[in-house]
Amino acid sequence: MIIYKNVDYGINAYRISLFKLKFECVGEIIWRPFDLVPSECHLEIFRFHVVEEYREQGIGRKLMNKFIKQFSKHKRLNENYSYVLVQPQSFRDEDETEKVLEVENLYEIYEKLGFYFTEENIDRTKPLHIMQYDL
């Protein structure tokens, strides 16, 4: 059984999580809306994580598809979120038990999910290059 849970994460941030059996969280996306200027409304992802033992099973794709679908629906309701931004970087989990993905792998994952670089000729070994997904 898969359960998506969308919750307020505090200070204008939100989380969508995917749970499997026994309500074990296997992945999450944490994002915030950026809507200071109505014509420039977009979303920013600042954490996208799938638990290591569930990687390469399509969990990340399911989670991202749910996230995108949620905001594509809002767009049809005349809310102005027109794109999603992310600046991929590697994080080590607190107890250092999970394999850390290198930034090159993160860029590749986001590209497979439909994101593209907003700049040309980027160095894929360096983190924090901006990637965009158009809603």
Rank of each mutant, 00 (worst) to 15 (best):
N78G: 15
R32F: 07
V37G: 13
N6K: 09
I59V: 15
E40H: 13
R55N: 02
I3A: 11
C41H: 11
G58R: 09
H74N: 01
Y14N: 00
L18W: 01
L21N: 15
K73I: 05
L113E: 15
G60K: 02
L113H: 13
F115I: 00
E120W: 00
E119M: 13
F46N: 11
L77T: 05
V84N: 10
Y81Q: 06
G60C: 03
K62F: 03
R55V: 03
P33Q: 05
G114P: 14
K5D: 14
R47T: 06
S39Y: 12
G27Q: 09
F48C: 08
I130H: 05
Y133F: 15
L85P: 07
I3S: 06
F117T: 04
R92D: 12
R61Y: 05
Y116W: 00
E104N: 08
E94D: 15
S39C: 09
Y107H: 12
S17L: 10
Y81A: 08
G10C: 00
F19E: 11
F19M: 10
N65W: 04
P88M: 08
E52I: 02
M131H: 04
K75F: 06
S72I: 00
N6T: 07
D123H: 05
F117M: 09
E56I: 00
E44V: 13
I122R: 02
N78M: 15
Y4W: 11
M64W: 01
D95S: 12
D134Y: 01
R47P: 01
K75I: 00
Q89C: 08
V103L: 07
G114H: 14
V100M: 13
M1W: 10
K75Y: 09
I45N: 14
S39H: 06
Y116V: 01
K5T: 09
K20Q: 01
I29P: 11
E96A: 05
F71M: 04
I30V: 13
K66S: 00
Y14M: 00
V7P: 00
E79N: 10
T97M: 08
E52F: 01
E104Q: 13
Y14R: 00
D8F: 11
L101H: 14
G60N: 06
T125M: 13
Q70G: 00
K5M: 12
H42V: 06
E53W: 01
H49L: 04
Y54E: 03
V50A: 03
Y107I: 07
K66L: 00
N12C: 14
E108S: 15
V86Q: 05
E98Y: 04
V7D: 05
K20Y: 03
L43N: 10
S17A: 14
F48W: 04
Y81N: 12
D95Y: 07
F117A: 11
K112C: 05
A13F: 03
G27C: 12
E102G: 09
L21W: 06
M131E: 02
R32P: 01
F71R: 02
K69F: 11
F46E: 12
F34L: 01
W31L: 11
V51I: 10
I45R: 15
Y110W: 14
K99P: 09
V100G: 10
A13G: 05
F91C: 02
L21Q: 15
K99R: 14
Y133I: 09
L135N: 04
L63F: 02
R124W: 02
H49S: 03
L85V: 13
Y9G: 06
C25M: 12
G114R: 08
F19P: 13
F46H: 08
L18V: 11
R55I: 04
H129Q: 06
W31K: 10
S90P: 15
K73F: 07
